[in-house]
Amino acid sequence: MKKSGATAGFQAAAGAGVIVALMLPFSRGRLEATLVGHVLVQMPLLVLAGWLLGSALAEKLERVMEQWNRFGVAGFTFAIFVMLFWMVPRSVDTAIAHTGYEIFKFAGLPCAGAALALSFPRTIPLLAGALKAHFVSMLAVLAWLYTAAPVRLCNSYLASDQKMLGAGTALFACAFAIYWALGPLFGLPKPQPTIASGAAAAREAPGGARI
């Protein structure tokens, strides 16, 4: 699974490029003008950019991760907390009003993405699956929260925006659910080991079948 230096370089450039593009006043203004743009476009893109950067750094950080991020536990913890923070409507509001929050957002979300990129490849399928399932459930719950809220949750945005965010989040939930279901359902069959060799392979694979 050695990655060529060129791929890593390309990933790093793409990640950094996305972050810079999102920081430009023009795109910041545009995206932060609506809730959907802010929460469903800008924030996921920041995470994605972080993911690219993290993937690019994966090989360099291999030793550190092996020691400090076994099975991706630390990285997932980091990403979960950062995402939880940005799910709070008040944080979204404050990012617009206070530069400090905005900087924290532009730094924290890419870090969360990088943490995910550094953690998923080293984790066990059980943890990865559980996280994905909970993520989809959480998105559904968020979609409901934004749709059912009796009041505006963000003072800086219109109520109609909030409904759109709810609908958009529901779409996100469906999209992730389908995307993650396609692999297990139709993914390319791996070379089929016999039971005995499969067992051996499972024992050898890092983070394979064993916990």
Partner: peptide, 24 residues
């Protein structure tokens, strides 16, 4: 529910490891 989620994730993983994917 979480208990059974874990159960299905593990059985699903093992089946995929052996048969390639769930449609198989």
């Amino acid at each position: 529910g979480t208990a059974f989620l874990l159960f299905y994730l593990e059985t699903g993983r093992a089946i995929i490891a052996r048969y390639g994917n769930l449609s198989q």
